[in-house]
Nucleic acid binder design. Structure first.
Lengths: 108, 108
DNA sequence: TGCGAATATGCTAATGTGATCATAACGGGC
DNA sequence: GCCCGTTATGATCACATTAGCATATTCGCA
């Protein structure tokens, strides 16, 4: 084992690396939520949301159960919230920036 | 503003979503490190490492300074370590899994 | 000035990701 | 059983990411 669990960690971070999936995780952190509620909250294509949820399911970050005709999602890993919080904090620190790539050498 | 800073957050998480870049961040969390040391530690193509560092630079997560003929990298955002720790913790919880996609409905 | 070490950049091929559209599958009520 | 609402899946297209290779750039030094 040369990669420890770093690979899994990278997969996890990538799974969280999309606006829609972050929002989904945020919602699920508050309470279990059905597909339709997420869709109306996020206002995106039905298929698109379904695919993002599939990503999260594949990573075992959420599970789903049927309630009649609708599907209710639930977080399986309660520690995801902590990751998002840490990321939020880091963003607040790092400031706006995003596309620059010039002055990477401190001015002096 | 409907996307708050979630987009930036997603970008950040994606920037961390690669084994090599995670390792780089881990090294830089300990101490500033020159390119060559990272390369020999990671044992990957020179160009590949350079490109990963470029990603981190673009995101303003690291900066570089020249020391003679070599380049020394430094973390600009000290809170990245916290994100990685949170991710590590989450992985430890979530267990192995990775490719399953079947029994997403709890057995009953 | 010319050379060599260290690093960056450009190009390309392979692969992955995300959005959209169409369609399938499932559950409930009639 | 049939129709409808809800969600999942498959196909496709555009675009991003990554690795590898070649080449450029920069700096120190003889």
């Amino acid at each position: 084992m040369g990669s420890r669990s770093v690979d899994r960690e990278a997969d996890l971070l990538r799974a969280l690396g999309h606006t829609t999936r972050i929002r989904v995780i945020e919602m699920l952190t508050e309470r279990d939520t059905c597909f339709c509620d997420m869709q109306s909250a996020l206002k995106i294509e039905q298929a698109t949301l379904s695919q993002h949820l599939q990503v999260l399911r594949r990573m075992r970050l959420v599970t789903s159960r049927k309630a009649g005709t609708q599907t209710i999602y639930r977080l399986t890993n309660l520690r995801l919230g902590a990751i998002l919080q840490a990321a939020t904090a880091a963003c607040a620190t790092g400031e706006p920036a995003a596309e620059a790539e010039d002055l990477q050498l401190e001015p002096n």
